[in-house]
């Protein structure tokens, strides 16, 4: 029972209070770059969530059983290489066995290697001292939180595009200020999931 509550609170924290994009500033590039259409935003987030969970499942045991404590300083270099390899593997497996999923997500996968949200979540799992199961749920929550932020922002952006924006704010500045307001709304969740 106690376990379930911890997992629920980890999920809620990862999705709402510690949202990857809006409060940790990880994955800003896809957040600003691929959020013009809700459809694209959704596919991209699904791909990110998938890679996050699989990467956590692989990097966590590697760190705990191979690197820690003697080679902990290799964390950065090992994690990024493992993530790059995982992304390649996922791409190959999807292409070979699950063609429809590959067609929907394939183009986003190569972009995810250098997405700081994926490397960020695998590292945070270690720094926060979570257990293996907790880490997996944290990764899942981070991915869902990324999706929530992307979808919300895609909606906000379609309104902004239609609005009459002052000349000097057109383009990127108004997008960033809109992101500030979305992020402000997420401050309201502070305290949930403790």
């Amino acid at each position: 029972m106690n376990n379930t509550t911890t997992i629920v609170s980890i999920l809620l924290a990862a999705i709402l209070t510690d949202n990857m994009v809006l409060s940790k500033f990880l994955g800003i590039c896809p957040f600003l770059g691929v959020s013009k259409k809700p459809g694209t935003a959704f596919s991209m987030s699904i791909a990110v969530t998938l890679v996050m969970v699989v990467s956590t499942a692989v990097t966590y045991p590697i760190y705990t059983y191979l690197l820690y404590p003697k080679f902990a300083y290799l964390q950065t270099i090992v994690f990024i290489l493992v993530i790059a390899a995982i992304v390649q593997l996922i791409e190959i497996v999807l292409k070979r066995f699950i063609k429809p999923v590959y067609n929907a997500l394939g183009i986003y996968l190569p972009l995810i290697t250098t997405n700081c949200a994926v490397l960020g979540v695998t590292m945070l799992n270690i720094t926060d001292g979570l257990s293996f199961v907790q880490s997996l749920f944290n990764a899942l929550g981070a991915g869902l939180g990324f999706m929530l932020a992307m979808l919300l922002f895609a909606g906000v952006r379609s309104k902004v595009e239609a609005a009459d924006v002052p000349e000097f704010l057109k383009g990127l500045p108004i997008t960033l200020i809109a992101a500030a307001i979305v992020s402000l709304s997420f401050l309201g969740f502070a305290g949930i999931g403790g």
Binding site: F168, G171, L172, L176, I177, A180, I181, F186
Partner: peptide, 30 residues
């Protein structure tokens, strides 16, 4: 976090304004 987005937005707007004054291209997108 909102302050970060806001200040960055304002800085990009200011840099765009300066760029425009000097006849340079402004940054519209990421």
């Amino acid at each position: 976090p909102p302050g970060g987005f806001f200040v960055f937005g304002v800085l990009v707007a200011a840099s765009n304004a300066i760029a425009k004054k000097n006849g340079k291209e402004i940054v519209e997108h990421l």
